[in-house]
Amino acid sequence: MFANNEDLLERITINSKIMVGKPVIRGTRLTVEYILGLLAHGISMEAILEEYPGLVKDDIFACLLFASKTLQDASFVPLGAEAV
């Protein structure tokens, strides 16, 4: 079963105290930008998951969806910053 968009986007968080406020995979310090860079350089999803055993496929799909939504149109507002 596929996760819906809202469930995927909940995997991405923004906190000004983590990675200078860049979007990260919740519970990690892995930025969306970093994961997208790995994919862009031909690193397979399986290799990423092997390198970072705490990740699951939906985390990578969440990064792709976040990037897609961010680029889709200017009306998309990224998730609000978490209060610490």
Rank of each mutant, 00 (worst) to 15 (best):
Leu64Arg: 02
Met45Gln: 12
Asp58Gly: 01
Val24Gly: 01
Cys63Tyr: 02
Val84Pro: 14
Phe2Gln: 13
Ala62Asp: 05
Pro23Val: 11
Cys63Asn: 02
Pro53Val: 07
Leu49Lys: 01
Leu39Val: 06
Glu33Phe: 08
Ile25Met: 07
Arg11Leu: 10
Ile48His: 08
Gly37Ile: 03
Met45Glu: 14
Gly54Leu: 15
Asp7Glu: 12
Pro78His: 04
Ala3Gln: 11
Ile48Met: 06
Ile12His: 03
Glu46Lys: 06
Ala3Asp: 06
His41Gly: 09
Arg11Lys: 10
Met19Phe: 02
Phe2Asn: 02
Ala47Gln: 02
Val32Met: 03
Leu39Trp: 09
Glu50Val: 06
Leu55Arg: 02
Val24Lys: 04
Asn5Lys: 11
Arg26Tyr: 11
Glu33Gln: 07
Gly21His: 01
Leu71Asn: 08
Asp73Phe: 03
Glu6Phe: 07
Ser68Cys: 07
Ala40Lys: 10
Ala74Cys: 09
Leu38Ile: 06
Arg29Cys: 14
Glu33Trp: 05
Arg26His: 13
Ser68Arg: 09
Ser68Gln: 05
Phe2Thr: 11
Glu50Phe: 07
Phe61Arg: 09
Asn5Ala: 14
Glu33Asp: 13
Asp73Cys: 13
Asn4Phe: 10
Phe76His: 04
Thr70Asp: 11
Ile35Thr: 05
Thr70Phe: 15
Pro23His: 02
Ile12Met: 11
Lys69Val: 05
Ile18Glu: 12
Ile25Gly: 06
Ala83Gly: 15
Ser68Leu: 09
Lys57Ser: 07
Ser75Gly: 06
Glu6Asn: 12
Thr28Phe: 13
Asn4Leu: 06
Leu8Tyr: 05
Thr28Pro: 11
Cys63Phe: 03
Val20Gln: 15
Tyr52Ile: 03
Val56Thr: 07
Asp73Val: 00
Ile25His: 03
Ile60Gln: 01
Gln72Arg: 08
Cys63Leu: 04
Leu39Pro: 02
Ile25Leu: 09
Ile25Lys: 02
Ser44Ala: 01
Cys63Ile: 08
Gln72Pro: 00
Met45Tyr: 07
Lys17Glu: 14
Ala62Gln: 00
Ile12Pro: 05
Ala67Pro: 00
Tyr34Ile: 08
Ile12Thr: 07
Tyr52Gly: 01
Pro78Ile: 10
Tyr34Thr: 04
Gly54Phe: 10
Tyr34Leu: 14
Leu39Met: 10
Leu79Trp: 03
Leu39Gln: 08
Leu39Arg: 09
Ser75Gln: 06
Ala81Glu: 15
Ser44Leu: 04
Thr13Val: 15
Ser44Gln: 05
His41Asp: 15
Glu10Met: 14
Ser44Asn: 07
Ala81Lys: 12
Ala81Val: 15
Ala3Ile: 01
Gly80His: 12
Asp7Phe: 00
Ile43Val: 15
Lys17Pro: 00
Ala81Thr: 13
Glu46Ser: 14
Val77Glu: 13
Asp7Pro: 00
Leu55Ile: 02
Met1Pro: 00
Val24Asn: 05
